[in-house]
């Protein structure tokens, strides 16, 4: 049998010490992705370090009005948290559109950030995948790529990042706190995930020996009026074709504040800086929304089956902003 060692850590220092001496080790949180990947033979860690007993399960208000979320907070708990629902409704909504209730009860915040693409060719050990086996090629290009990326792709990889939560985190300027035996550091969420380029196997800025300990959300009055909208092939329990996390502030008919991020379109949660730039100071009209969406999606590239996602993404941006304008944020 394919064996692996199992360790369990009771505190962060033990956990990061363990991984520093076990180069082939992986941290195990909720296991909703890692265990799948191990069963499919995509991941094969020599050691699994169970971190579910680490004291990283709090959701705390910060003095500046922001919120600090422990890395082991379960997705369902975070979605239902009063602070999150009140101050960052888009994040609560994003979490609730992800996976199923059973998976959300298991999945952790840190694990959600680190979840890997659901590209079918990444999972299929007999298919060519540069992410799984650098240099092997990419069967998704020219294959079944309806759900694949349209922004920031390369000729080596067109996979998407599957997380809903991270799309909201990207819009909210979240910061990921990581720790290793070398100390702590803070990585903005928008810089955490990497585009594939020529190295699609390198997916994040996280070093192999680093543990995500928390995600911090800066205060954002804007975020109280925010929404997450997900377009998918069925009403529940499916990955996004396209999703939008948006917050909008309008004064005298002019956009005075906006946050916008897209999911399902790239190897990372896609913060729509270009669209935000177009919108800020522009009249809060459908025309502006469309111009902003066009600007953001201008560099998009469709493949054999996912061309439709470019127009879909634009429309999802417009529809979400329009809804924020006319109906406000979600309750």
């Amino acid at each position: 049998m394919r064996t692996f060692a199992y360790l369990s850590a009771d505190d962060v220092a033990t956990a990061v010490q363990a991984i520093s001496t076990e180069p082939g080790a992986k941290f195990l949180g909720g296991g909703t992705n890692l265990v799948d990947l191990m069963r499919e033979g995509v991941e094969h860690p020599d050691t699994v370090i169970d971190i579910t007993r680490l004291p990283l399960t709090g959701v705390e208000e910060l003095p500046d009005g922001g919120v600090r979320i422990g890395a082991l907070v379960r997705n369902s708990d975070l979605a239902g948290d009063r602070l999150i629902r009140g101050r960052y409704p888009m994040l609560s909504q994003a979490l609730l559109t992800g996976a199923s209730a059973q998976l959300r009860n298991m999945a952790t915040v840190g694990g959600n950030v680190l979840q890997r693409t659901r590209c079918a060719y990444f999972y299929d050990g007999t298919a060519a995948c540069n992410k799984r086996e650098p240099g092997a090629g990419c069967d998704a290009i020219g294959g079944f790529n309806r759900n694949h990326a349209i922004l920031g792709t390369s000729e080596d990889c067109i996979a998407t990042h599957p997380s809903d939560m991270c799309v909201a985190l990207a819009a909210l300027d979240a910061v990921v706190e990581v720790e290793s035996v070398r100390g702590k550091r803070r990585i903005p969420l928008v810089d955490f995930h990497l585009l594939p380029g020529g190295t699609p196997q390198v997916e994040t800025a996280l070093e192999a020996d680093e543990l995500i300990t928390a995600v911090e959300l800066p205060p954002s009055p804007l975020a109280a009026t925010s929404r997450y909208r997900k377009v998918r092939d069925r009403a529940s329990y499916a990955f996004a074709l396209v999703s939008v996390a948006a917050a909008l502030e309008v004064a005298d008919g002019t956009v005075t504040g906006v946050r916008l991020a897209l999911g399902g379109v790239a190897a990372k949660p896609w913060r729509a800086y270009e669209a935000e730039r177009v919108l800020l100071g522009a009249p809060a009209t459908e025309e502006s929304f469309r111009l902003a969406a066009e600007a953001e999606l201008a560099p998009a590239v469709g493949r054999s089956q996912n061309e439709f996602k470019i127009e879909l993404a634009k429309r999802a941006v417009v529809a979400t902003l329009r809804q924020l304008l006319t109906e406000g944020g979600a309750a």
Binding site: R118, A120, Y121, Y123, D124, T126, A127, D139, G142, G143, F144, R146, D233, R234, A235, S236, Y237, A238, F239
Partner: peptide, 30 residues
């Protein structure tokens, strides 16, 4: 009508996603 489909790689002739994540069945919400 709305979701079920097994996809085949056009060149390799292999089913792309032989699982319930790739083959969508209606949920209660549908």
């Amino acid at each position: 009508a709305l979701m079920e489909r097994t996809t085949t790689h056009p060149r390799l002739g292999k089913y792309t996603s032989p699982n319930l994540s790739g083959y969508l069945l209606p949920t209660n919400a549908d």
